[in-house]
Design a binder for these strands. Structure first.
Length: 965
RNA sequence: GCAGGGGUGGCCCAGCUUGGUCAAAGGCGCCAGGUUGAGGUCCUGGUCUCGUAGGAGUUCGUGAGUUCAAAUCUCACCCCCUGCACCA
């Protein structure tokens, strides 16, 4: 289909107002939203998947005669638009390439350096993409989250949440760039240039007192091992600094000191060298032992506090470091205390038991298992550490008297708590790998004492959200269980931040901006109001808290300055579209957006207005399974095409169908241009078959009855698939099963005529949700209007015929048998036998088989004697009792393994005879003949007739010399 | 570790909720034939193994179990992926 036709249909839909959702009292409605996209760059083919589900669903519901509202907006909040605008400002080559391709001129670039303008520009470009794909969103809903009216809405939302007691303040540790402000540390690295995979590591500090009162502050991940400390480690030549906190003075590395100030306040004092302390002794807390301060290269001053407590029995690195000490120093340390054990009865995995074999302390065994000889074997040492830490954490029990038999897991918490109670221990957080912000600065973790939180941990709120989540239907169904699990774990979340973010200023402290997740949990409700703003019936200033209280909550008199009737209309509109039928998003939304969305609805709305469904889709991934992100468009040799390129190559329909057909919704789809090619080819096929379906030949009644009956079933199943959200199934039926039905119809001798035309008429409408352009093209002139507004076909449009279906099923079964027999023949390259002679089973065999089946359903086997007895009352069986035993023996096992038979008896003789032409054509026989078994004695040269079973005629394929022409 | 998902024929991917119609849909690849003034498109058939007649054997990560019957149910184990928090 050429681009002009595509545009033609898109304009026709627009002109007909197909996408406009109208409130019609008493009429069913369908309201589904997709999680609006963030403004992080231009869209590419990886972004359209949710639309490829949402649009067909909306189109389907429209064709069911429902009113449907499919809104759209963009989520401009947060940092994405800021970073993108920055890239424009930096004239980043990849970004510029995309912009040029999108037709943006050089002189327009300056405008896009402003984040808000950039966000609006991107939003407009997304809308253009949707139009070019025939995705019918209601454009009067279109919004960006930085619009004045949206901000008014978010301010109200937070006011309402605050009034409900959902906001609290507390202490929080935030990732922040000291120069650029807060950043998000996540794998997408939106805000970062590296370190997105970093995890937050929590150290506990342990104070070791020197004789002079100063404290060497060690940092550890395993506070419980304080009972096994033999010494402290400092790095040779390391510069240390005194951190003053309260009245205490702690000695730590420079990096550690800065971290402590950031997270716990205080200030840094004078500097000293490690060598000043080496050789002195310190007191171990909790045990009171005195241990020496030693030097080792294992210490990394940038990690933790730069002071390391040495636990050689359990830390492989300490054990390795110990080995490198001079003999006499080692001797002075004395025996290495072992403080925990792996119980002998623990069942260990092979990789775990590897670590515990051998002799020596646990750490020495781990070193031996991984063949670590010295500190220099860094990789092996890291693995030994990782694995023995895990083993001891999961399986270990303490052996020190104070904590005898306490699990390591438990001991860790207890020891950390005790240390902290003494007031000289702190938690220190840092990243597991260095994190660098987009502008090249090191990102740190900072303590924020007065952070605002959404109190998702509130037990009552959580309980009602949990209850609501149980009532939400979810696709895939497995997500239902996961969702309540996620809600269960959901905890207080910071909902504001300070920095150069886009968003709505926090009403209770305008220094802060509302965090982007928190401002996108209730917008589905706002879309309804937005339509009044975008059509000029409401102004942003009129959207006051009293207005929203009335519209969303039905509370209070509304906003006095706004026309009462108008407010009532908005309220009615809200109550018409709500509750939301479906919220669709990618799997990245599972853990944050969906739960927060649910929480907010639960807090603000009564039960009858809570969302009905969520729909989670997988990603479009690159060849190695990674998610495609907007910033890599065109950066890898054009591997991922832009939307424009894709449309040019395949057109909108093939692309749309690719998303639904390539995998089931929850699965990731690997972007595969060849598959899109294949699908485009399939659509050409569909088009051809529909076009060829017109004709005026007379049909064959029994074949037409079968065609209709099958079509009836297919229509039913397509609709069931849409209703269940199984869009891949719907696509498969529509684009695979229906054409193959028609192919078979033609192969069986059907010709284009009124029946095929009728089937095509339904089919074209079934094509409309997923491939609407093609459907319009094929439906032109057929319905006297757009296909998009035609009613969905109903199964009742086609009569059922069990008889016709049974006949065709019988014939297919016969074909299968013929094929099986013919296969070895043709494989040897021999010619096909000239004649096929069929012998149809007599009625008594069916009777006997039904007895066998009855018996097997009771779990029994039908005995010969029993059958004989029973035949007394069945003359037709009685007449053949001579053959009964033999037949019974042959059929007994077979019947049990077979599916229940179609209960419609088929006139096998008649069916085979009338299919003669087909069978001859299909297999290349010269002729066929059909006999009843009992009449065939004289035509049975190979004695095969008694093989006949009901539904499976016996046959003999006969070769005879071609005597006549 | 915790949570979720997954391991299917050369490859991709259905099926598993509701055990039998499953040697297992569909696509790709491959083979043969047809169409076409040769290998492109399209159409038809084939594509686990054996078998001179519709049969038999062995398959759905591994092992065990339930059952007349298991890709489908149960248990154990191995391996892979994702998430674990402020990131839409």
């Amino acid at each position: 289909m050429d681009a002009a036709r595509v545009r033609h249909w898109q304009e026709a839909w627009a002109k007909a107002g197909v996408s406009t959702g109208r409130r019609i009292a008493g009429r069913n409605k369908y309201y589904a939203v997709i999680a609006y996209p963030g403004t992080s760059g231009l869209l590419h083919v990886g972004h359209l998947r949710q639309f490829a589900y949402a649009d067909p669903l909306h189109r389907y519901h429209r064709m069911l005669g429902e009113q449907s509202l499919f809104p759209f907006g963009v989520h401009a909040s947060g940092l994405p638009a800021v970073t993108w605008a920055q890239r424009v400002k930096d004239r980043d080559p990849a970004t510029l390439r995309q912009l040029v391709r999108a037709g943006v001129r050089e002189r327009e670039l300056a405008r896009l350096e402003d984040p808000e303008t950039a966000a609006r520009f991107l939003g407009d470009s997304y809308r253009a993409v949707l139009r070019s794909l025939g995705i019918l969103v209601d454009e009067t809903t279109y919004l960006t989250t930085v619009d004045a009216d949206y901000r008014a809405f978010v301010r109200w939302q937070f006011g309402a949440l605050h009034a409900a007691g959902a906001l609290i303040q507390g202490t929080y540790y935030a990732s922040v760039c000291p120069v650029c402000g807060p950043v998000a540390v996540d794998p997408s690295e939106t805000d970062l240039s590296s370190g997105g995979t970093a995890e937050v590591v929590r150290f506990t500090t342990v104070p070791f007192r020197l004789e002079d009162g100063r404290i060497l502050l060690a940092a550890t991940l395993r506070p419980e091992t304080v009972y096994g400390v033999t010494n402290l480690w400092l790095r040779p030549g390391e510069g240390l600094v005194v951190w003053h906190h309260g009245s205490a003075a702690f000695v730590v590395s420079r990096a550690g000191g800065e971290r402590l100030v950031e997270q716990h306040g205080g200030h840094l004092g004078h500097e000293l060298l490690a060598s000043e302390l080496v050789g002195r002794t310190v007191v171990v807390p909790l045990t009171g032992r005195s241990v020496p301060v030693l030097e080792s290269d294992l210490v990394d001053p940038d990690l933790g506090t730069g002071v390391v407590m040495s636990v050689p029995a359990h830390a492989p690195a300490d054990a390795a470091a110990l080995r490198e000490l001079p003999e006499e120093t080692r001797a002075r340390l004395g025996a290495v205390p072992v403080i925990l054990e792996i119980p002998a009865d623990a069942s260990l995995t092979p990789s775990e038991s590897e670590l515990v074999v051998g002799i020596g302390t646990p750490a020495e065994r781990a070193l031996a298992a991984l063949r670590v000889r010295s500190l220099a074997d860094a990789d092996a040492l890291a693995e030994a550490t990782e694995r023995s830490y895990r083993l001891e954490f999961v399986r270990g029990r303490m052996t020190v008297p104070e904590l005898a038999a306490v699990s390591v897991r438990e001991a860790r918490d207890r020891v950390a708590r005790r240390l902290r109670e003494e007031g000289t221990s702190f938690e220190v957080q840092e990243f597991s790998v260095p994190v660098v912000c987009r502008n090249g600065h090191a990102v740190i973790i900072r303590r924020v004492p007065d952070q605002w939180f959404l109190h998702y941990g509130d037990p009552a709120w959580k309980a009602s959200t949990l209850a609501a989540s149980a009532r939400v239907s979810s696709w895939p169904p497995e997500f239902a269980r996961e969702l309540s699990e996620i809600v269960e774990w959901f905890n207080d979340r910071p909902c504001t931040r300070r920095g150069r973010w886009l968003g709505t200023p926090f009403p209770y402290d305008p220094e802060w901006v509302i965090e982007p997740i928190a401002d996108s949990t209730f917008y589905m409700a706002y879309y309804v109001v937005r339509r009044f703003v975008s059509t000029g019936r409401l102004r942003a200033e009129e959207l006051t808290p009293p207005f929203f209280d009335y519209v969303f909550l039905g509370r209070g008199p509304g906003e006095p300055t706004v026309d009462r009737a108008l407010q009532e209309e908005v309220r009615a509109e809200f109550l018409y579209w709500y509750p939301l039928d479906l919220n669709m998003g990618g799997k990245e939304h599972k853990r944050v957006h969906f739960p927060a969305f649910l929480y907010t609805h639960v807090r603000l709305l009564p039960p009858e207005l809570l969302p009905r469904g969520v729909y989670v889709t997988g990603w479009i991934t690159g060849p190695s399974g990674e998610k495609l992100s907007k910033k890599e468009v065109g950066t890898k040799g054009g591997r991922i095409p832009s939307i424009d390129e894709a449309l040019e190559r395949w057109g909108p329909d093939a692309l749309r169908l690719f998303y639904v057909l390539a995998a089931s919704p929850a699965q990731d789809i690997e972007w595969d241009p060849d598959l899109v090619d294949t699908i485009a080819g399939r659509l050409d096929d569909v088009e051809r078959v529909v076009r060829e379906s017109a004709g005026d030949s007379a049909g064959r009644p029994e074949l037409d009855a079968w065609l209709f009956s099958r079509m009836r079933d297919l229509v039913r199943r397509v609709r069931a698939a849409y209703d269940a959200g199984e869009l891949r199934e719907a696509a498969e039926l529509t684009y695979v099963a229906i054409p193959s039905l028609l192919r078979r119809y033609y192969a069986r001798g059907g010709v284009p005529g009124a029946p095929t035309h009728r089937v095509a008429g339904a089919w074209v409408r079934l094509l409309s949700p997923m491939t609407p352009h093609l459907a319009e093209e094929l439906g032109e002139g057929r319905f006297g209007g757009l296909v998009a507004v035609q009613p969905m076909p109903s199964p009742d449009d086609f009569p059922a015929s069990e008889v016709a279906e049974a006949r065709e099923a019988f014939l297919e079964r016969v074909e299968e048998d013929l094929r099986a027999v013919l296969r070895p023949v043709t494989e040897r390259g021999e010619p096909v036998p000239e004649e096929a002679i069929f012998y149809v089973a007599p009625g008594w065999k069916a009777t006997v088989e039904s007895w066998v089946r009855e018996a097997s359903e009771r779990g029994e086997t039908l005995g010969v004697r029993e059958a004989m007895d029973r035949s007394a009352s069945h003359p037709e069986v009685m007449a053949r009792r001579g053959e009964l035993a033999k037949y019974l023996a042959r059929v007994q096992a077979l019947v049990r393994a077979e599916p229940p038979p179609a209960h419609r008896p088929v006139d096998e003789v008649e069916t085979l005879r009338s299919a003669e032409g087909y069978l001859v054509r299909r297999f290349g026989f010269r002729s066929i003949s059909v006999y009843r078994e009992e009449e065939a004695a004289t035509f049975d040269p190979m004695g095969r007739r008694d093989r006949a079973r009901p539904g499976r005629p016996a046959f003999y394929l006969m070769r005879r010399p071609a005597t006549d022409g």
